[in-house]
Design a protein around this nucleic acid. Structure first.
Lengths: 186, 186
DNA sequence: GAAGATAGTATCGCCGCGATACAATATGTC
DNA sequence: GACATATTGTATCGCGGCGATACTATCTTC
């Protein structure tokens, strides 16, 4: 069962990471899920910075996430904005305080140190994990949450980007953000 | 910040895995931590199948783990045995029921499916994660929990294995188990 | 318009989690 | 050998993450 070694490694790394996040967030009264939600929101595009998207990304129920977000707002780490087209949806914007927190804790200092040890293996690691995540998502029927760059809906005409799903124009740097509606290009 | 991509990938894979474990364990009333503890114990050697070792492996407090183990024992997934030399220590033995559970859920079915997609990248992935975990552990000052095979204390004479730390003889297949006292060979 | 789908919140009960305190045994020092 | 110290394990408390359920409001579809 040598194929289980990758599983064991990921489980242990995940457990240590979780423990580290808990330790680092404790002074601010933050749990791992709070930092994870903020980290996601900092990378999400305007279609994906909502409670339901956070819930899908983290694999939690929307009811639960809704309550975590209230805590984050009270802590001054999140700002809410109502969507101008759809009165149901709320956009979540990490504050400057949250950005600073993420810069310091996500990834944790120990992680940054450890990553230097991977050296030239990093690219292989990145490629392997990307394939694995992609396969895991499709095996569970979950959304891919990829960047617009790799989405089959992205259109590129005359140097300008457009989302083929919403027909909206996209700023170039926003094509690197994560999207809830992402579907991998064929 | 391309070096953060590995972090993002691991965090997301970890979150999905956690969600999956929660879903799979729910019918038996098991939380992710229960399956993780059992999975560790199934791989631990006789110096490392104790509450304190589980706590260190998972990065949790011993008080917390102690309570989880009581739940596992009540569920018929764990058996306790007193150490014959040290009256303080307790050895934890997963029952046949636990072994069957692990065989079915750890790794989860979806994971097994997904792993086939990694193909020939698997070895690189394994190697990269091994280096990363090792660096993470030393960056946090944590124990390595490696196999006796890779331990600097392991002695090999006349086809028989011995632990140089405890002076105990080791059966060959037990040198593949995880040890709390493990220290990487130079 | 009516029916169904979707986004979000409120409330409940369960239980993981760290902190603290404690008991029991082992080890080390004089 | 006696005493201080370290180590293993458990019990208890309070906090808060988590899913389930129920609910409101809004959008979409026919």
């Amino acid at each position: 069962m040598a194929e289980d070694r990758v599983f064991d490694l990921i489980e242990r790394i995940g457990a240590l990471l979780r423990s580290e996040l808990r330790r680092l967030g404790a002074p601010q009264g933050l749990e791992p899920v709070h930092l994870q939600a903020l980290a996601y929101l900092a990378r999400a595009n305007r279609y994906s910075d909502t409670p339901i998207a956070v819930a899908e990304f983290l694999g939690l129920t929307k009811g639960n996430v809704s309550q975590r977000l209230i805590a984050l707002e009270k802590a001054g780490l999140l700002r809410r904005r109502h969507d101008r087209d759809d009165a149901r949806v709320v956009h979540l914007v990490p504050t400057a305080k949250a950005q600073a927190l993420l810069g310091a804790l996500s990834p944790p200092p120990a992680w940054r140190t450890a990553m230097t040890a991977t050296g030239d293996r990093r690219e292989d690691l990145e490629a392997g994990l990307t394939v694995l995540l992609s396969a895991l998502q499709s095996a569970n029927g979950r959304r891919t949450f990829g960047q617009c760059r790799s989405c089959r809906f992205l259109q590129h005409k005359d140097g300008a980007f457009t989302c083929g799903l919403t027909r909206d124009p996209l700023e170039p740097d926003h094509t690197l953000r994560l999207c809830r509606e992402h579907e991998p290009a064929a």
